[in-house]
């Protein structure tokens, strides 16, 4: 697989809502090679602050356009949100190993479930596009209603959607992992795909193990290089430390040690 370091032109960079942003850039090489679960590593400013690149999950591609959504949390994402259309960003990608989705069980009730926590929707929309004929069930969890993103995208892809919010402002009141347990009481899926906060993924790994379901989890870690060289972003697995940037970010739940 080809990894490129490019100067990519920003097509648009807009606030979606709250501190969630949507950025589109032009790169046929990244667009053509990107797989769901992979990420790009962006030098958000030309100077020394922030120094390191920021890894951001690929949200989708359309023609030669690559789409990202990101949450402004620190200096890096803040600097990224200040970048304007027609400016150029130094981007490396596509990086990492994405979700394995070949040979999925064909459409059937809740055979494939995508579970997103907060910003975790980003790569799962891309995955839902790739496995569109399978029509997966999508569970999205967030603290409150207006932190739930991408519901129109999932709906337009024909996915069944269930929401969970901590405050009950949308869908099930409680955690998305509790919603998952309820879903599992009714039907046993063949696969789970998830991206979200670490504690959520840990719970999903436990649920998957108890129910003997294959789960693929996309992890997040602070990265220095993003290309497997520095060994900074490691995670504990049964085969020792593995690199989130190169061996992941998607891992099988059975590999991971929590």
């Amino acid at each position: 697989m080809k990894i490129a370091q490019i100067k990519a032109k920003i097509i648009s960079n807009k606030r979606l809502k709250r501190n969630y942003w949507h950025l589109e850039f032009e790169s046929s090489i990244i667009a053509n090679n990107a797989q769901p679960g992979q990420f790009v590593n962006i030098k958000v400013s030309d100077g020394l602050g922030p120094l390191l690149r920021r890894p951001i999950s690929i949200h989708g591609v359309k023609g030669s356009t690559v789409k990202l959504i990101y949450e402004v949390l620190g200096k890096g994402t803040q600097a990224l949100s200040a970048r304007k259309p027609k400016e150029f960003l130094d981007i490396i990608g596509p990086l990492g190993n994405g979700f394995g989705y070949k040979q999925l069980a064909k459409a059937g009730k809740a055979k494939n479930i995508l579970i997103a926590g907060g910003m975790g929707v980003a790569p799962l929309v891309f995955l839902a596009e790739k496995i569109k004929p399978v029509k997966p069930l999508v569970l999205i969890g967030a603290k409150t209603k207006n932190q739930i993103l991408c519901t129109p995208e999932f709906k337009s892809l024909g996915c069944t959607l269930k929401l969970a919010t901590d405050d009950g402002s949308a869908g099930f009141k409680g955690r998305v992992t509790d919603l998952l347990k309820i879903v599992l009481e009714q039907a046993k899926p063949s696969r789970l795909f998830s991206c979200g906060p670490h504690p959520m993924l840990k719970t999903i790994a436990r649920i998957a193990h108890e129910n003997k379901i294959n789960a693929q989890l996309s992890l997040e870690e602070h990265m220095a290089c993003g290309i497997g060289a520095c060994l900074g972003c490691v995670v504990s697995t049964k085969a020792g430390y593995k690199r989130v940037c190169k061996d992941g970010p998607v891992f099988s739940s059975e590999e991971l040690i929590w």
Binding site: L48, G49, P50, L51, L52, E221, H222, M223, A224, C230, L231, G232, C233, V234, V235, Y241
Partner: peptide
């Protein structure tokens, strides 16, 4: 190697 997290950014630099 050591326990993660293993890197963090600092002003114009990084710790590992």
């Amino acid at each position: 190697g050591n326990l993660p997290p293993r890197t963090c950014e600092t002003p114009s630099g990084m710790l590992n």
